[in-house]
Design a binder for these strands. Structure first.
Lengths: 338, 338
DNA sequence: CCTCCTACTGCAATCGTTCTCACGCTATTA
DNA sequence: TAATAGCGTGAGAACGATTGCAGTAGGAGG
């Protein structure tokens, strides 16, 4: 760090006290306009910028928000993570806050979640979905650090999440409208998301007057391989579905592969619908119909929520559910058409 | 921020001065082992952690490194950026440093590059490749802020970059070994990378005793569309190449598409080689042979370089050239084989 | 003319550390 | 025995801002 000018230099040159300079910097109206003028000129001349570390110390507020990233080495590459990051970063430029990124080396069982973060300045924390929630969140709650959960939920903390239920429901409704009546579903791993998407699937059937058939639902694990296996299982039934709806894109692509291996043409003989609108969705052949999660917007909203909370700790809990967007591409089509 | 215990609390409880506590924290050996013991116990009991803001203030060092990201909204999604980020993050966990990410809203012509960063604490800066270099870098140089360039070069600053020349040369050598003698090249936009890759291409030919034929080189702009156009141009010549080597994956995929449209089977009738090993390389049909840039490792090294530099400003310039790795997939094969 | 009020300004304490000095004690050396 | 060296410790001044409080000046009102 180069030695820069301090508030004292400005004070000296402008022949005022540091208090006055400080008041000018902070737009206090307790300063004569002529004096202000003069001080501003000096500030500009010296290219003075307040030292934010010193300010943090006295104010007890660093204007730094922390994004805690799960310890998986490639997490930054994850599709949804990237998008959320873009959203946060974009929205953040509206505020005088900066973002620190912290990825611990691993889950620490002894000390609680983020071991090396103690003492590091942060006014608030973004927590992105995955498993690790419990311990981390409990600790942050205890420390009364403002938190916003992204893609997860809580009874106490602010959060923003996809409306999984209605998104899945809308997919099913749309498929029914396209003439499908036998709709297979490949479920994800146990957990909130998968449950909600399955619930939406059931709801969609119900809304369309179709009955729920457990044989048309098989479980997967979000992997391509399992998606393929699951699809084959679905397609081996007597009452073969005419469309397979998977709880994420990767499994949908697995289904695509299965169809290919079974010699079924997609979408002519089988439609396939994914969930996530990941990169893979447009790169697959044929391109995948899917549900786009508004990750970017989620990141944006999360930032707004967190900054608001940091600036006013006493606000009531804020929660946002955003709708997914149905994206129709080549892997699905009206039943019976060519 | 919750009020936590300060060094004074520890001092009071342990019945020593704050100076001694400070010495204990900082592993000074100027403290009696019995005293140290006692202080450590108190520290643990109070769950005391030094306030890093205060420490930064007095030390004039924040232990924060800044990663400046170009203002493009989706930059976090860029393939190489993600990988580099993973590498930085991974290596960073070895050090007592944290990373701030800062993406300005746009290029500011008035003030110089990163307008809102003034006064924010940072000990060093990662700068990732693209165009914006000039002004930003000049400014950082002036402020004597330690900088490491990633995927770019400088005469003064530390940098780490791919060895483009030898990577491209090795591709050509490999292709020649596979029996190809007419090797088309789709160049990128003017700039260091493209120049270096073209140079490597020429070098590879030379090394293999083949002569350079300007007709086998066309220029592109790194886009899929242009790659397709360029490939068609190459394939319309009388002396059609048997393999097309593109300066990046996207153009290679464009070439793939062109081949498809022209009814040429890849790799039976035409081999295609990319550069970057982006996501698209494995998702394309057939999967793309390409050069993998060691982005992850670059991020890791960059971190090591920057931390070293921050801790010792007087070190001589450090530069690293990393070799690319040739990845052979389905889009290339020995000439004449089936 | 005196008092009070308002508008502006400066003094000095404060935030939580680090680090230089000086001090006292013990052990070593001449 | 006196001088010297070293170890362990504490007092207190920084670091660069903010902010409560006190003080000054000038104008208004009685």
């Amino acid at each position: 760090m180069m030695k820069t000018h301090s508030i004292k230099d400005v004070a000296r040159v402008a022949k005022v006290s540091t208090a006055t300079v400080s008041r000018v910097i902070n737009n206090s109206n307790l300063v004569d306009s002529w004096t202000r003028e003069r001080v501003l000129k000096v500030i500009q001349k010296l290219d003075y910028h307040p030292n934010l570390v010193a300010r943090s110390l006295i104010r007890g507020k660093s204007n730094l928000l922390t994004l805690i990233v799960p310890p998986e080495p490639n997490f930054f590459s994850a599709f949804y993570f990237r998008q959320i990051l873009c959203g946060i970063s974009h929205s953040l430029s509206k505020y005088p806050y900066r973002m620190m990124i912290y990825q611990p080396e691993g889950y620490d069982s002894q000390l609680g979640y983020p071991p090396q973060l103690d003492g590091f300045p942060m006014d608030g924390v973004f927590v992105i979905a995955p498993l690790m929630q419990d311990r981390l969140v409990k600790r942050l709650e205890k420390e009364k650090t403002p938190v916003v959960l992204i893609n997860a939920r809580s009874n106490i903390l602010d959060w923003i999440d996809l409306d999984n239920v209605s998104s899945a429901r809308d997919v099913v409704s749309a498929l029914v409208k396209m003439g499908h009546t036998k709709i297979g579903f490949i479920n994800g791993l146990e957990g909130y998301n998968a449950n909600a998407r399955l619930e939406g699937y059931k709801l969609g059937l119900e809304k369309s007057g179709l009955s729920y058939d457990p044989q048309l639902v098989v479980s997967g694990d979000y992997s391509l391989e399992k998606g393929s296996v699951a699809a084959k299982k679905l397609l081996s039934h007597s009452k073969k579905p005419t469309v397979i709806f998977a709880a994420n894109d990767l499994m949908a692509i697995g289904a695509l592969r299965a169809a290919h291996e079974l010699g079924l043409s997609v979408p002519r003989e089988l439609s396939i619908f994914g969930f996530d609108d990941s990169d893979a969705a447009t790169l697959s052949q044929p391109q995948l119909s899917t549900v786009r999660q508004p990750f970017f917007e989620m990141g944006e909203h999360a930032t707004d929520i967190l900054v608001t909370r940091v600036e006013n700790l006493k606000l009531p809990q804020k929660t946002i559910e955003l709708p997914g967007q149905l994206i129709f591409r080549q892997s699905s089509k009206e039943k019976g058409k060519n």
